[in-house]
Computed example of a mutant assay.
Amino acid sequence: MKKFFLFGTLSFLFLSCSSDNDDNVSKSNLTIDIQGLENLVPNYVYEGWLVGGGNIVTAGRFSVNDLGELSQTTFELNTNRLNAATSYVLTIEPAVGDDPAPSAVHILAGNFNGNSGIMNVTHSSALGNDFSNSAGKYILATPTDGGSMDNEESGVWFLDNSTGTPMNGLTLPTLPNGWKYEGWAVINGEPVSTGKFLATNMADENAATSPFKGNSSNGPSYPGEDFLQNAPTGLTFPTDLRGGTIVISIEPEPDNSPSPFLLKPLVHNVPMSATTHTVLNMNQNLVSLPEGTFTR
């Protein structure tokens, strides 16, 4: 079967790997070493791909346990295809019923330099950015409670109101296909989503359907959430976000889990002394970005 698709900024031809099962085909090993990946739960797996000569072929699938250990690090592959590869790309794929071509969720990539290479999120065939220019501001407020000034510490909105007029509070690069941003409030150790978004100057996907917001519809046109009702099991709303943690994560699309994904470029522990309606600054968390090497 032949299938055309867009991969990064280049178009490649997907080739069937059925001939690799022929005992007469020469095989060689590809070894990978990756730090910072997480368990994807049973429905998804990681899959490597060899890119070269306008072609892309699978380089094997693996899972990761709760300790970040890969289930397999050495893969026996067609020697000619391995030697022809100019780059390696790692994607997230459905574990069952998967399309034979790579998904849009490219998490790591790197070029071969001789017989080895370094893979990271910065490569143009992955997320294409190191997120070093990321920055975030937010306020504690509950604008969807009909104007009441009660429980203002029970909502978080990613905006900057320091000039008296709400402005965009997030500086984040545009994500490639296969990824979305998501805001989180960690309440008593439990992460609760504030909603997914691509644009930082618009309301997030939860704006119209959130079960947590109040009965007023006057939320700002920026990502954020009020935690006023319908609390998840184990939590009580309204709450107090002070002493908790606010997070911006980068999530695969489709999402593999209801919990935050491993990519968390912005994080902030809300001070117990935080004042509502006053701008708070987030911190970069770039140590959470995975990276690795590959050798043939």
Score class of each variant (00 low, 15 high):
N230G: 00
A104P: 08
S249V: 00
T165H: 09
S193Y: 00
T295A: 09
A109L: 08
K137L: 10
E153F: 06
I107P: 10
L90P: 07
S18K: 12
N21Y: 13
I118V: 14
E190M: 15
L235D: 02
N256K: 05
N201L: 03
N111S: 15
I250D: 00
V51C: 13
L262C: 06
F75C: 06
F14H: 15
E76F: 04
L241Q: 02
N230S: 12
N83D: 12
P238E: 03
N256V: 13
D145C: 05
Q284W: 02
S162T: 13
A185N: 08
N168P: 03
N21T: 11
N230I: 02
T236G: 00
L175R: 01
G147C: 04
E253S: 10
L90N: 02
L175Y: 01
D255N: 11
F112R: 04
L37K: 08
P102W: 11
S221A: 13
M282H: 08
P271W: 12
V105E: 11
G52N: 03
T58A: 10
P102R: 09
T86Q: 14
F62K: 02
L108G: 05
G219H: 09
Q72S: 11
L266M: 04
D240G: 00
G243H: 00
A84H: 08
T245P: 01
F14S: 14
F62S: 05
V64P: 09
D204F: 07
T245M: 05
E253K: 02
I139V: 15
Y138M: 06
G219M: 10
I248P: 06
S124K: 12
T163I: 03
A141S: 14
Q284K: 14
N151I: 06
I139K: 11
A135L: 05
T9L: 11
L172C: 05
E251C: 02
S19E: 12
G36W: 08
H277N: 15
N206H: 13
S71D: 01
N21V: 09
E190D: 07
V25A: 09
P260T: 01
S125Y: 15
S71R: 06
A274D: 04
D204W: 03
V45F: 08
G243R: 01
L198T: 14
N201G: 03
G48Y: 07
Q35K: 13
S11P: 09
A203Y: 08
K196W: 07
I107M: 12
T209W: 09
S273N: 13
A135I: 03
L37N: 06
T144K: 05
M272C: 07
T276Q: 09
K213G: 04
S259P: 00
F212H: 12
A208P: 00
L77T: 01
L280Y: 08
E251D: 01
A126W: 09
G195C: 03
L172H: 04
G147M: 03
N269T: 15
T58H: 08
I248A: 01
G183Q: 04
T239K: 02
N168H: 06
K264E: 11
F75E: 00
F237P: 05
D150Q: 13
T9N: 15
N230W: 07
S162E: 01
T236A: 03
D99T: 10
Q229Y: 02
